[in-house]
Design a protein around this nucleic acid. Sequence first.
RNA 1: CGGGGUGUAGCGCAGUCUGGUAGCGCGCCUGCUUUGGGAGCAGGAUGUCGGAGGUUCGAAUCCUCUCACCCCGACCA
Length: 576
Amino acid sequence: MRASQFFISTTKEAPSEAELVSHKLMLRAGLIKRLGSGLYTWMPLGLRVLRRVEAVVREEMNRAGAIELLMPAVQPAELWEESGRWAVFGPQMLKIKDRHQRDFCFGPTHEEVITDVARREIKSYRQLPVNFYQIQMKFRDEIRPRFGVMRAREFLMKDAYSFHASRESLVDTYNTMYDAYGRVFTRLGLKFRAVAADTGAIGGSGSHEFHVLADSGEDLLAYCPDSDYAANVELAEALAPTGARPAPAEPMREVDTPKQTTCEDVAALLGIPLARTVKLVAYVAGEHMAVALVRGDHEVNEVKLGKLPSMADLRLASEAEIREAFACPPGFLGPVGLDRTKIRVIADRSVAAMADFVCGANKPKFHLAGVNFGRDLPEPDVVADIRNVVPGDPSPDGKGTLALCRGIEVGHVFQLGNKYSQAMNATYLDEAGKSQTMEMGCYGIGVSRIVAAAIEQNHDERGIIWPQAMAPFLLVIVAIGYGKSDMVKTAADSLYADLTATGFDVLLDDRDERPGVMFADAELIGIPHRVTLGERGLKEGVVEYQPRRAHAGQSGEAQKIALADATAFLTGVMEG
RNA sequence: CGGGGUGUAGCGCAGUCUGGUAGCGCGCCUGCUUUGGGAGCAGGAUGUCGGAGGUUCGAAUCCUCUCACCCCGACCA
């Protein structure tokens, strides 16, 4: 591609709306343009990157035995009513009406449609297992779109759905997909981690998320450096403390805490470790109030809490509800003296093992110290793991301690089981001629999100540094004075022709720009390899090669190459 | 939805408090010079000041309403 015939629109400054590096760089490099909140045009350069990611995903899906199809983006409401998700999915789903006032949605996911395909097409166990996938634009009306294409409302996703005659077959395909995902992210040159995950609204049992590791990631991951344990903190188990609860040693007493409304403040005032305090968080589940007790240095995990019996639809209690139930403002709440017929007390395992702790007194400006279960208040109604793990917690697999890192979720694999097949009556005849419900799995990859995630992981102060597999162009030929110097033009055209003939995606920068502009653009756009041709070098018969980033066998510095050797050298470099 | 903020040229911003008819940088156009790291000089174009209504002799500026976008919290690839 010649730059003069392509469309490059770079800027020095990023629009102020961009927060994340990847978002800024994507806008500055002219990969995307914003149309509305969470809606982006993929400009020619950006589209090339998107297509590269797509190609790798497609190749690995095909290799793993998945079969590509393409389902409608717009789906009739009836299907969603069958699965029961029309109401459940909520405002996240963009609902639309056609001219006959019939309800449709712009597909946020395709379990319903694919299950409909399966139930119509699959009659016999002989047709199973089968794994369909598509790469398609989805729309989810996100509560808060942000970070450009990282959390856009319209986004490109690869979604695969497998159907099985047995649980074993499902697990088998699940493992195949898990491995394929690893290959996809490895080929894309990303540092990633697969973690055990919560299944969320989609439902099902076994589930793993694939995360690109980045400090800007929205997810917190727990992993064990000494083993292969890794899980989203939503799921990561905080083991119960070992050893029995100590016997009470202190009397319960009130302490003045005129301004101390947080555990941190109270601990500081009393000069005790934060881990000696207990914090109370009030929730409403259904009609009833429930309070979660965690240590002052811990945080409540609402995913875990929501899995406890009759806690499914929990929400934080409002301040008004708290004042009514406790006759006390937030900041001084505690578990002592509560009416247990109205308020359930759910304690984290670590709290249940505490003695002589400090907590709110349910009385403005006072806390209690030396509090003990069994003596000062009844034992908790429920003791469970309801907190987020923290660094240093023992690993649930018993092999060392946990560390935390942040990640960007770019892939998710689920064993769905028969949730959709049952609701939508997707059955087949088994060997005995008996009707059976299919087992299902589903497997997603956020294709457009990967582009942003890759930039988060691969950039410097000058711009993007594309991993080779997703670069819009592998090499840029910077031809200085292309329009002025026949020597440069001839050499550049010839090199470009040779390299293009070998099948590489090469950008020839033949624009009438100053060298600085061309260098700066090449670096901002992130093209992995650059060769510079100018009269100065050509007179000595040399060109200059410089990688965008130092990598194996190459330094980051420029090196002079004889023009005669350039094609062979550059070919070698691009083949990696 | 709750809390905070911003809308002025293609982009980044000043001007708003204290009303007087819009400016800076980048970009864009023309010419000359320049040509290995985002050029210099000279000239030029561009705004319904987010929208509607009001106050006023006069509104980017004050008032009311509205829309859009962004940031912080609850969802997800």
